[in-house]
């Protein structure tokens, strides 16, 4: 199921990373109307002073000015471009390199500078909900990957059950599915546990002897 749409941003906190404060006056004003607090992290040597570890995806939103040169070192999930909190790009110079930089930071919505008040709710709505959607898709992909890896155990468990109970593959699968539900596990996890439990005892451990003993034997 797709995540529910967030529509009320009251209590949120926007970190606006920019050096052109006049371009974001309307952004600041409109965020206030929407119940979103605003902070302007200081820029030191081109880097914004933000405690990235303290950001909370439920509360914080990053507005990053694309005209600045890499002002925030976000820990981005490279495959999915998923930042830790929603990122909304502030677009000044509309050059591909600048836009690519914002995409690489995981921006899920954009606002043109100077920001117009009428565009802010849409950008927040889009940016935050796209962030939630991407996070949800990421989680679903991870789940699919895990299940794909567990497929081998399912095949083995079906064959084992067929041999053990003298049933066909459909019946074996049904039984495994029912048992997995009964034990409140995914089918894959249950089949892995099933195969592990059925595995025979390991071979006797080999006793290593001192080297000279081996030499004596020669």
């Amino acid at each position: 199921m797709a995540p529910r749409l967030l529509q009320n941003f009251n209590g949120g906190r926007a970190h606006i990373v920019t050096s052109s404060l006049t371009a974001v006056e309307a952004l600041d004003k409109t965020l206030g109307k929407l119940g979103v607090g605003v902070v302007y992290p200081a820029l030191e040597d081109g880097r914004a002073k933000i405690d990235l570890g303290a950001l909370q995806p439920e509360r914080d939103i990053l507005f990053i000015d694309g005209d600045l040169d890499n002002p925030v070192a976000l820990d981005i999930d490279a495959g999915a471009h998923q930042p830790p909190v929603p990122v909304i790009g502030l677009v000044g110079v509309e050059a591909p390199s600048r836009l690519k930089h914002l995409i690489n930071l995981g921006a899920s919505a954009f606002l043109r500078k100077p920001v117009q008040g009428g565009a802010v709710y849409t950008a927040l709505f889009l940016g935050i909900n796209q962030f939630l959607l991407r996070g949800d898709l990421r989680a679903r992909l991870d789940d699919m990957d895990r299940r794909r890896r567990g497929r081998r155990a399912v095949v083995k468990a079906i064959i084992a059950r067929m041999n053990e109970a003298g049933v066909d593959d459909d019946e074996a699968y049904e039984w495994l599915r029912r048992e997995s539900m009964r034990s409140r596990q995914t089918l894959e996890a249950y089949c892995e546990a099933f195969m592990t439990a059925r595995a025979g005892p390991l071979d006797e451990p080999v006793q290593l002897r001192p080297a000279e003993t081996r030499a004596e034997r020669r």
Partner: peptide, 14 residues
């Protein structure tokens, strides 16, 4: 409260 920030649910209701 034109955006209902004080009174509407945080998430859209199905």
């Amino acid at each position: 409260d034109p955006y209902l920030v004080q009174s509407s649910p945080r998430y859209a209701v199905a």
